[in-house]
Amino acid sequence: MLLKEHPLALLRRSWPALLFGALAGALLAALLSFIQPLEYSSTVRILITQPGATNIDPYTVLKSNERIAQNLSQLLYTSSFFENILSQAEGVDRDFFPTNEYDRRRAWSRMVGTTVEPGSGLMLVTIFHPDRAQARSLVQAATQELAKQAPNFFGFSVRVQVIDAPLDSRWIARPNFLNNALAGLVLGALLGLIWMIANRQRI
């Protein structure tokens, strides 16, 4: 009579393959991380307010500020904002960006990261760049552009204020070697587990 091998017995017999898959996945992910561009980041926190909205209940104002912050975060990715930011940023190598419009927009979209805190007008803006000083210059220019354009898009009562000055990353911000290695470890372990199950023997 053919019986399926007990899972624990199968695991005891095949754990070297599982371990090998996990370590190989982690090593491969780490190696792939090294071939990607190494980038620093600079992050600024801004607050969107409407000082003139005195006759509206606070909850409505907060939700309105949140929506404005979300819209501003999307506008930041547009080519018009990018060109204005690039023209204002000091010490930024403009040759770093591709001349092809499609590649240029994709490069900018990859460099920018935004986060809006729910229920508030707080927004984090992060710029990634191989040069820490240029990342800082770009995020400062981005903040200035947001403050300048917000009243034009959403009314002159809207104000954008910097509440946390740009904070530069101490170490490489991207790629995240630890996260990539852990993801590779898990993926490698899963592949090892699949191989182990697919090649189990019947006794």
Rank of each mutant, 00 (worst) to 15 (best):
D131R: 08
Y59T: 10
F177M: 15
A183W: 12
L32I: 10
S80N: 15
E101W: 02
L187W: 08
L18C: 04
E101G: 14
S14D: 15
P175M: 03
D93A: 04
F82D: 00
L182D: 15
F97T: 08
E90C: 08
S33K: 05
A183C: 12
L11C: 09
H129E: 05
P16Q: 01
F128G: 01
P151G: 01
L3P: 14
V116W: 00
F128W: 05
L193W: 10
R110T: 13
I35G: 09
R94A: 06
Q88L: 10
A165Y: 02
R200V: 09
I127N: 04
F128H: 05
R159Q: 13
P58K: 02
M123A: 09
A89T: 07
A141S: 06
L62G: 11
P16H: 05
A30L: 13
G121H: 03
I48C: 04
L32E: 10
E145R: 14
G113H: 10
P151L: 02
V125M: 07
Q144L: 12
P151I: 06
L2C: 13
L182G: 05
Q134L: 08
Y40T: 04
A150N: 05
V160T: 03
N176K: 13
Y40D: 01
A141P: 13
A17G: 12
V116N: 00
A24E: 02
F81Y: 10
G25S: 05
R104A: 01
T115E: 09
D95N: 15
V125D: 01
R136Q: 13
G155V: 00
K4L: 13
V162D: 01
N180Y: 03
W15C: 09
S109M: 11
Q134Y: 15
L190T: 13
E83I: 14
A141D: 12
W108Q: 01
S41Y: 03
S73L: 06
I163Y: 01
